[in-house]
Computed example of a mutant assay.
Amino acid sequence: MAKMFYGTTPEPITIDDRMLAHVKVVVATKLRRGESFTLSWTHGIDEPGGRSTIWLQPAIPLRFVFDSEQPESLDQNLLKRMANDANSSRGLSLDIDVDRSDVAERPAQVRRSAAPRSLVRAA
């Protein structure tokens, strides 16, 4: 699982490597243009119900850390879908499917490593 460090919070948001590779491209494109937007996800099965949303803007520090040394292959259709979502008033949502094997899709996994609970999207 890859990690996205947001702001000065030391606890990362943990996301499937393939999903984070797509998020990184969309986020970098938006922030390079000076565009702010929201990023949301549904809480995992071990969390009380609900969603989390963060506000992304160029002034807030952001770092992506991947488990794999090799870059993930990117799905251009998924990137377009994610970019369109990021441009919408509802913002980018990680509650979408990511093609893991170029054949079958499965839900993205998202976890916030904040004590005492973690956010995990059911696989």
Rank of each mutant, 00 (worst) to 15 (best):
Ser113Pro: 06
Trp55Phe: 12
Arg33Asp: 14
Trp55Thr: 05
Pro107Asp: 10
Phe64Pro: 08
Gly7Met: 04
Ser89Cys: 05
Phe64Met: 04
Glu72Arg: 12
Glu47Trp: 09
Arg81Gln: 14
Asp102Met: 06
Phe37Pro: 02
Pro107Val: 10
Pro58Ile: 01
Val23Trp: 00
Met19Ala: 15
Ile45Met: 05
Asp95Thr: 12
Arg81Pro: 04
Thr14Gly: 03
Arg32Thr: 02
Gln70Asn: 08
Ser118Asp: 13
Thr9Arg: 10
Ala21Thr: 03
Ser93Asn: 05
Glu72Thr: 04
Glu72Lys: 00
Lys24Ala: 13
Asp102Arg: 14
Glu105Trp: 00
Ile45His: 11
Leu62Met: 13
Asp75Ser: 13
Arg18Ala: 03
Leu79Asp: 03
Gly91Phe: 06
Ser68Arg: 15
His43Asp: 00
Gln76Lys: 12
Gln57Val: 06
Glu35Gly: 02
Val27Ile: 12
Arg33Val: 04
Val120Asp: 08
Arg32Glu: 13
Val27Met: 09
Asp95Tyr: 08
Ser73Arg: 11
Arg81Cys: 07
Ala115Gln: 08
Leu56Ala: 05
Arg32Met: 03
Ser89Val: 15
Ser113Phe: 10
Ile60Arg: 11
Glu69Gln: 07
Arg106His: 08
Arg106Glu: 07
Lys80Ile: 09
Ala86Gln: 09
Leu31Ser: 02
Gln70Met: 11
Asp97Asn: 15
Lys24Glu: 09
Gln109Met: 13
Arg33Glu: 15
Thr38Asp: 00
Ser118Leu: 12
Tyr6Thr: 07
Thr8His: 10
Gln70Cys: 05
Arg90Leu: 15
Leu92Ala: 03
Pro116Tyr: 07
Ile45Pro: 01
Val27Glu: 01
Glu35Thr: 12
Arg112Trp: 12
Glu35Leu: 07
Thr42Val: 15
Met19His: 04
Ser68Ala: 13
Pro107Ser: 14
Ala86Arg: 11
Thr29His: 05
Arg111Leu: 13
Asp75His: 06
Asp102Gln: 11
Thr8Glu: 10
Pro12Met: 12
Ala122Asn: 10
Thr29Asn: 13
Ser93Tyr: 00
Glu69Thr: 02
Val26Ala: 00
Asp46His: 12
Met82Ser: 04
Val23Thr: 09
Leu94Val: 14
Thr9Lys: 06
Gly91Val: 01
Val110Ala: 09
Leu56Asp: 10
Pro10Thr: 13
Leu31Val: 05
Gly50Pro: 08
Leu62Gln: 02
Ile13Asn: 01
Leu92Arg: 03
Glu35His: 08
Arg51Ser: 15
Leu56Tyr: 01
Asp95Lys: 02
Gly34Pro: 04
Leu20His: 07
Leu62Tyr: 07
Asp67Trp: 04
Leu31His: 02
Thr29Pro: 01
Val120Thr: 15
Arg63Val: 12
Leu119Val: 08
Gly7Asp: 01
Ala114Trp: 00
Pro48His: 06
Ser113Glu: 15
Ser118Cys: 11
Val23Tyr: 11
Val110Cys: 12
Glu11Leu: 09
Phe37Ala: 10
Gly44Cys: 13
Glu11Asn: 12
Phe64Leu: 06
Ala114Leu: 11
Ser68Ile: 00
Asp75Ala: 11
Ala108Trp: 03
Pro12Ala: 14
Gln76Asn: 11
Arg117His: 13
Glu105Phe: 10
Ile96Gly: 03
Ala108Met: 05
Lys30Asn: 01
Trp41Val: 14
Leu119Asp: 09
Gly91Asn: 08
Leu78Trp: 02
Asp16Arg: 00
